[in-house]
């Protein structure tokens, strides 16, 4: 037994060492990946502190779904697209933005539907990648998020080791759709415009039951924003039409809850669902024409809501 346990322990320690090595490895690639754009986006938020900004908050449906210059032109205010990745989880996204909210700000909040289903409220692997890049956000984590970190840490470490080894092959200069440099000066993704769109954008069903904790967190965020004398508007994400159809019941449930709440809601979920042909590579990422369409829809909805 002793011999068996010793061997198990040695093996476990070997794996643990590899995981820790992977997490702390100084990868050159890390400063080039999309998660590192959090520094750029925070800089934008710090720079434009006139308190009358339009701040877009959500997952990649916003970064790959909006063209901020069009909104800026329409409303004459600084527009900052803070969105990076839905996989950070709703809580992480909200917690990250809170310190930057100032009086007079208009928050356009557009989380993905999977934040309310699919157990994405507490984040997924992308959150570990985000934390690896921006460890300051560790302080916002609760126990459940720590468990998510624990769950994805081994995988992330091994991925990092692989990318570290790959970095010696000199592939650092390629700026693809998911690169730190793939954003414009507002934080909108634009580098994918010249890339071919994927044929594999299809129906993606939402799994699981509605997460009331996520919904309550949004309500609390709305109260927080109001207390700061800023305002928040909920905007529906640009889910592709065929996914919308298969998830209609679940989405309409969220619709109905929001309609009964004190949250300002811009338009409805159906009008913001976008044709499949306007999607780039996932059910939330749009090509340029899609981004223009969705931004114009948002502008109309903001005007209808009395924003000027």
């Amino acid at each position: 037994m002793k011999h068996f346990l010793t061997k198990c322990l040695v093996f476990f320690l070997m794996i643990l060492s590899i995981i820790l090595l992977g997490f702390f490895i100084p990868s050159r690639l890390i400063k080039e990946n999309i998660h590192y754009s959090i520094y750029d986006k925070h800089k934008l938020l710090e720079k434009s502190n006139n308190g009358a900004r339009i701040i877009l908050v959500g997952g990649s449906n916003l970064s790959f779904g909006i063209l901020s210059p069009l909104i800026e032109e329409e409303f004459g205010k600084d527009v900052i697209n803070t969105a990076i990745h839905a996989g950070y989880g709703l809580k992480y996204i909200i917690d990250d933005i809170k310190p930057f909210v100032k009086e007079g700000d208009v928050i356009i909040f557009s989380p993905e539907y999977s934040h309310f289903y699919n157990d994405l409220f507490n984040g997924a692997q992308a959150m570990v990648q985000g934390l690896n890049v921006y460890p300051q956000n560790f302080r916002n984590l609760n126990l459940k998020q720590f468990l998510v970190v624990l769950k994805f840490l081994p995988r992330e470490s091994f991925v990092k080791i692989r990318s570290y080894l790959r970095s010696f092959r000199g592939s650092l200069d390629i700026v693809n759709a998911y690169h730190r440099k793939s954003f414009n000066s507002h934080g909108d993704a634009i580098k994918h415009w010249k890339l071919p769109r994927s044929k594999g954008v299809h129906k993606v069903p939402l799994k699981g039951d509605f997460n009331n904790v996520a919904y309550e967190y949004v309500i609390d965020f709305d109260i927080f924003v109001k207390e700061k004398n800023a305002s928040m508007y909920f905007s529906f994400p640009c889910l592709n039409r065929s996914s919308y159809e298969v998830n209609r019941e679940k989405i309409e449930y969220l619709d109905s809850l929001l309609a009964k709440s004190d949250i300002n809601v811009l338009g409805n979920s159906l009008e913001f669902s976008t044709p499949d042909s306007l999607h780039f590579d996932t059910h939330y990422h749009l090509i340029k024409e899609g981004q223009i369409l969705r931004t114009n829809l948002l502008i109309d909805a903001m005007r209808s809501a009395g924003l000027n």
């Binding site: 093996f11 070997m14 091994f158 692989r162």
Partner: peptide
């Protein structure tokens, strides 16, 4: 033997 185990563990963590 241990190399095979480590390889499998790394595959499990790298490509889940």
């Amino acid at each position: 033997r241990w190399s095979i185990y480590l390889l499998l563990v790394s595959l499990i963590f790298s490509f889940p």
